[in-house]
Write a protein that binds this DNA or RNA. Structure first.
Lengths: 352, 352
DNA sequence: ATTAGCACTCCAAAACATCGAGTGCTAACA
DNA sequence: TGTTAGCACTCGATGTTTTGGAGTGCTAAT
């Protein structure tokens, strides 16, 4: 088991690690503080409870575990969980979860897929889950079409790279004849096709306007509409599910905590901070926040595990699982890993 | 104050009604069982607590109030609430709620408006709220446009009466030339424009296909796409907000009840039954369900008030407020009345 | 018909008692 | 020197008892 932090090697010897491991695993399973006698029986190293006590005393001093109160057993501290997640989780060998029969019919809309993902994951894990739609960052324009709806209104349709479609109704003063509309369509398509959204700068717009000549105001309108239609994607969609699962864990089942947590889930805005956080950290693509490590204050008593999936081309979304600190990290991380692969597969299928 | 049930007139005399009213109002405010002494002081009719006790005893026998246990005060029964809602609420004279400064910028998308409505209402009332998007039932087709996106894909855009836009990507075997596309567009628009969705029957489709001649398969595809895009609207969108408000009411704050209620809100499917119920009842447009009157089992300890708003032409949506039985019916009903008017206003603005 | 008074009920909260899991420490042991 | 048995001690969890007070129903007086 590779250790990536030298100091830890010195701090903890083999036996302490075993004991710490035992404490955490036991606590994960029961949710109750675990005492020395339990460990003494549970582990293979044959030691009396007294010896364990000594070691546990050390572990406490080092900050890996703590006592809720004197004469109670020990529970893992955030530092303990962190060590566990970083070093103690068996990296492999878990049987593939029931996630196997996770056959999403590819024909459905992305939104529905994501909702379903959140739901399935929540059912599977018994934690709260969140899934964000991929942000359109870096997405390119594939196709633009203006059509006259009636006297005063034009419908602008924009299709992005990933077949995401945006509509916008533009109200114009003057009715346009078909020929003009055709010209504008050609102009816009040739001018904007293949550009990513950031690449549309003032220069591009100015050039388009110039070419549009007398109809430059329409171009402005279209650009506005484009901006508006796409800014909508900025406040990214977040789907949550299984939020009531947190009621199942007594350590969170305190009226105030619950109110706060559920509100956070309902508001969703705050959840977005988890996403940006995750994006910034690349590595394995799976990120674990324990307690205060999460950027959301109300989750200080929770742990959060997030994964990013890619829709190719830098378009990313996030899946997150929120549960008590004693969540089953192994299972959760595995589930996310599976799911990540599945999603990558689904969305990267060419065409529809 | 009109009484619509004769028997009630006989059952309750003036004084009993006053006392019942006092009991309910007091209980609505405090949430605590209310005793005879309180009433004796609270009402204008100068009666001693002993007299009140006698009357209350009668009222209990008649089923309007009940005791949680011997030697506790009285609380309203469902029958009591029903009487209150039907007869005792002052029909007018409430100051217009803060809902006044309820200025929704009309430019926003309907979906966002509805979300905002749910949120505002939840904030305003401190209950849980739900808002459904208007169902597209009876909506008419305003505009159809097919455009070639690339070799294999056609984008179909359908605009409905209320400026709701639906997109669908159709994968075709053969690439179509512009001329054909134009013809199809004209064909579809002339053939379908102004039709409501039910009006598109097999005969219509057959005629269109015939006219399309060699491209009849495309017509089929479009019809399929149309059906699919719109069926999406069938499982109607429901937005909820303030669901955690129910945690504020101790009488609901029981772990099991909360789990059930919150799950119902999260799932949303069950909420739909409230909608269909409401639709079937016309009358004032405002509907009050007390306890078991609601069609949702998990809400037996709640009351639900719903209102329908109209987008004209029979296209309707529902707003609902879910709270404890002791919700402030007057305020809630007024808020809904206000809102209903506002929404009617917003959506019925011509054009955008 | 109304009301004062009283005995009674029953819940909620406080006070108290008990239990036991778990600890730290010390002293004995291999 | 590391391990362990033993023991006194701690402290929350749990259960029982006590108490207080709000509220009732009934009766007798007004």
């Amino acid at each position: 088991m590779a250790t990536q932090d030298e100091s830890l090697d010195e701090e903890l010897d083999e036996r302490k690690i075993k004991i710490l491991n035992a404490v955490i695993r036991n606590y994960l399973a029961t949710g109750e503080p675990v005492g020395s006698r339990t460990i003494s029986k549970y582990t293979d190293l044959n030691l009396s409870s007294a010896t364990i006590r000594n070691e546990m005393s050390d572990l406490e001093e080092l900050g890996y575990i703590l006592q809720p109160h004197t004469s109670a057993g020990r529970i893992p501290s955030d530092k303990g969980y962190r060590f566990y997640v970083d070093h103690l989780i068996r990296e492999k060998d878990r049987e593939v979860t029931e996630m196997k029969e996770f056959v999403i019919e590819k024909t459905e809309k992305m939104e529905q897929v994501l909702k379903k993902v959140a739901k399935l994951l929540a059912n599977d894990t018994n934690y709260a889950t969140m899934v964000t739609a991929p942000s359109y960052h870096n997405n390119k324009i594939k196709f633009i079409q203006l059509s006259q709806m009636d006297e005063e209104q034009i419908l602008a349709v924009v299709v992005l790279n990933s077949n995401i479609v945006k509509n916008q109704v533009i109200t114009v003063g003057e009715a346009l004849d078909n020929e003009t509309l055709l010209k504008l369509n050609i102009l816009l398509n040739t001018g904007l096709n293949g550009l990513s959204l950031q690449e549309i700068n003032l220069a591009t717009i100015a050039r388009l306007k110039e070419q549009a000549g007398i109809h430059s105001t329409i171009v402005s309108d279209v650009m506005d509409a484009l901006a508006e239609a796409l800014s909508e994607g900025e406040d990214l969609q977040i789907y949550t599910s299984g939020t009531t699962n947190i009621l199942k864990y007594p350590e969170l089942n305190d009226s105030e905590k619950i109110t706060n947590l559920l509100s956070t889930f309902e508001e969703k805005e705050e959840l977005a901070s988890l996403v940006t956080e995750t994006f910034s950290n690349e590595e394995t693509g799976i990120q674990v926040y324990i307690g205060n490590e999460a950027p959301i204050q109300t989750m200080k008593d929770c742990s959060v595990v997030t994964a990013t999936y890619e829709l190719g081309k830098g378009v990313k979304g996030t899946i997150g699982i929120i549960g008590p600190k004693r969540m089953d990290y192994e299972k959760v991380m595995d589930s996310l890993k599976m799911l990540k692969i599945q999603l990558d597969g689904i969305f990267n299928k060419p065409g529809e």
